[in-house]
Design a protein around this nucleic acid. Structure first.
Lengths: 281, 281
DNA sequence: GGGTGGCGGTAAAACGGTTAACTTGGAGCC
DNA sequence: GGCTCCAAGTTAACCGTTTTACCGCCACCC
């Protein structure tokens, strides 16, 4: 495989010059640039990203770290996140990295110097992974929030607007707002509709009441459960790929201008009507 | 971040010695090894994989390259493939890399020296990606076969055994074997059961005949279509993750002992009964 | 006509490891 | 006691880039 040295020799310049045209990092006369570029073309030169990364202290690889057990992240996810962030155009590669929830594994990952930054999915209020990343000094962005997100780059669902849309939908059907049920074990029978945010609890409620005749359910989250439930759930879909894209985008911004702390971004869920919401009886 | 130099200094040895204990590549007295290891522990040393890869000409990363459009490969896939191949135990990392079917993108990928080898999914009879890999001199393994697979490391479905199982299933229901229908546009009405290997054609047949009353269908492939079809298709499931694991395994064997060409491995599909096969009328 | 200031280019030192070739000290043997 | 041999360590070159000094040259200006 051809190296800068080969290219330099063929073009009759020094290897530094080759590097300058490669990275557009210092002015070069059009004539010289031409000679270098044709030398590269003739030799089929590809720059060795390892050597580049080692010398420049940057791999231009961003890891999308997601919990091992979560199967919601596949190649489609990474593709759309990458597209949303225009990552390729900005010169970054995205890789999907399943990590355990304790901080160990992620600490190891970034300790090796393989990635420039990490986008952390499914962030918990108290999150060992966040601590590990902070300790390692690796740039990172959060999808979601810790208990105290100030000072961290993060993007999240716009709960306020999403709830408003959800309420609109239910009120449009004729339901009336009331005080939130919170952790109540048993749903009072006068309740005609609920907004659920937890898979298990949703299953529980569905075995207890007839949906949607007796109770309307509007489910907040990823489509996994919603699709297989019977009746199919009306869903406020969490915009996972979009949030991934926003996170990557913010992280890259931060990498390019180290001082900056991009402002948190909020993105609403989208309503996908199913068969679990209907007019109250 | 600590480097070998820091470790060497703290342990009072040369950096070469540190490298030897790191890689088990030359004998070291237990006492020295101890000193080095505790120095590493005290400094929280992680070896920089970039530098290692550059110097050793090996990244120990294997790319699982799959077609862009195929959504069947997600993080679950990579996890099970990795487990099947015991890749981690053997010191390799697997990454999922979506590439276009022309050879360009894959050529670029390997030209950069980022991966030690490639496992190519969904191989076609004539495959530009195979040509690109051969030309680049990168070690690779195929899941599937090209028209002439001799000389390539490859693993595939055990069609012979799978077909035998499929026939057994159908004959058990009372169907009788006959000459294969091949490319016939319209299925003779005396045919009571078919084995299908193509999504589109399967859809076609299902609109033409009543399944399974009038015609039994046994579908060979991935569960994508089979799951959503109505009635749910009886499926010979292609063991994608297992094949991935076998491919990775064979590739690693080859990487470790460059001369060797691991023998092709065949793995049968598994029968998953659905509602599309029944006794003939 | 002698500073001065760009500009286009080069030489060489990193980056953090691996590894071939060479040293050293002590045991084994006649 | 001198010779060989081996095992444990060290030195230094190298992997393929980036990047910081530095250098020579020419135009410009007073």
């Amino acid at each position: 495989m051809a190296t800068v040295r080969d290219v330099a020799e063929r073009a009759g310049v020094s290897i530094a010059t080759v590097s300058f045209v490669l990275n557009n990092t210092k002015p070069v006369t059009p004539a010289t640039r031409d000679r270098v570029e044709s030398a590269m073309a003739e030799l089929g030169y590809h720059r060795n990203v390892l050597a580049r990364a080692l010398a420049a202290r940057s791999t231009r690889i961003i890891a999308l770290a997601h919990p091992r057990l979560d199967t919601g992240f596949g190649s489609e996810f990474i593709t759309s996140a990458s597209r949303a962030a225009r990552a390729r155009a900005r010169g970054y590669h995205l890789v999907l990295w399943p990590v355990d929830n304790d901080g160990d594994e992620i600490g190891e990952l970034v300790g090796q110097g393989l990635v420039d930054g990490v986008v952390l999915m499914e962030v918990l209020l108290e999150d060992a992974r966040v601590d590990a990343l902070s300790a390692a000094g690796t740039p990172f962005a959060l999808i979601g929030r810790t208990a105290d997100p100030a000072g961290f780059i993060h993007v999240d669902i716009d709960f306020e607007q999403s709830i408003a849309v959800a309420l609109d939908h239910l009120q449009g059907l004729g339901h009336r707002p009331t005080v939130a049920a919170g952790r109540a074990l048993r749903l009072p029978s006068r309740i005609t509709a609920v907004i659920m945010m937890n898979e298990l609890a949703t299953f529980g409620v569905m075995t207890e009441r007839v949906v949607p005749d007796d109770l309307s359910i509007l489910y907040f989250g990823t489509p996994g459960l919603a699709a297989i439930a019977n009746p199919q759930l009306t869903l406020m879909r969490a915009p996972a790929a979009i949030l991934g894209g926003l996170g990557v985008d913010a992280l890259i911004d931060h990498l390019e201008t180290p001082g900056a702390l991009p402002a948190p971004q909020l993105h609403p869920c989208t309503l996908e009507p199913g068969a679990s919401t209907a007019r109250p009886r």
